[in-house]
Amino acid sequence: MKSFAYSRATSNAQALEAARARGTQFLAGGTNLVDLMKYQVEQPVTLVDINHLALTEISQIDGGGISIGAMVRNSDLANHPLVRTNYPLLSQALLSGASPQLRNMASTGGNLMQRTRCYYFNDISFSACNKRAPGSGCAALEGYNRIHAILGQTDKGPTSGETCIATHPSDMCVAMAALQATVEVEGRGGRRTIPFAEFHRLPGNDPSRDTTLREGELITAVTLPSAKFAKNAFYLKARDRNSYAFALISVAAGLEMEGTTIRSAGLAMGGVAHKPWRIPEAEKALAGQLASPENFAHAADILLHGAHGYEHNRFKIELAKQGVVRALTVAAQGTSEVA
């Protein structure tokens, strides 16, 4: 690990002021950042500890939604009465990720900032990684790409400085995408809100950037709109072992039902792209339709349109389609009827 200066912020203003210095990173739960520092993938000059900021509240907001402080821990969020009752999709997604120890540490804001688990990004002995070393190429494209993207990736060959087939590893974020959350951030210039769909980005021609967060900005909260999917929600996660593993594919499915008819839907996938994968047209295609396997398969086709796999991850395309149908089927049966 490279040496760094450590300081502890006790107010947002203090944290933002400290972040002016080049090479400064905020330290929340540290479950990803400290790990990446050990691998020398991350080499901050200064760490500003934000664990003592007053960002730990979960509260109801006008219009029926909730606001989740950026420092609320994953385990606390998953178990909060408002989340358990109104946003079971989020509770299920959170409890599908990591281990109890890690969930006790990991924060809401930090989860948004997770870096990819691409093997080649995480290991500096591979020289080619456009995310870690911009312009160096992509070792994953012709390497072992089992956990990699099938949608939204940039593929211009292994030596291109734009190629990236990394996936975003979060479960929490997949549920938040389906729930159409909003990210609240604060910078020295003031506050702004970022719709969830715009917070994470596709690699485009700059795979080094995971998010649209600007330099020095601090995530203060995530807000969720009023709950529509409490009664019909299911988070499906397919992985190589049944606990404590990242998703090969995951599906967050929420339905607002009227009898057997779908009034509205929230649908997003994880493990398939550089960001939580949500196509609003797939949700619109379900609205007003019967909760039937055919309609679910149609939504899956829209979500997977244009999917492209590689030597080791082609299976994900069919797995994802089946996963979407399965998650919607279980959601339609009711949140408590999963088994």
Binding site: Y6, R8, L27, G30, T31, V34, D35, L47, D49, N51, S75, S99, P100, Q101, L102, N104, M105
Partner: peptide, 24 residues
């Protein structure tokens, strides 16, 4: 943070002490 051998309680909550900086 993958094996749990380093698990300790911080304020009664189990965490991985290998990913916790002493200063934190």
């Amino acid at each position: 943070g993958q094996c749990g051998a380093c698990t300790v309680l911080i304020d009664g909550r189990r965490v991985n002490s290998c990913l916790t900086l002493a200063f934190v």
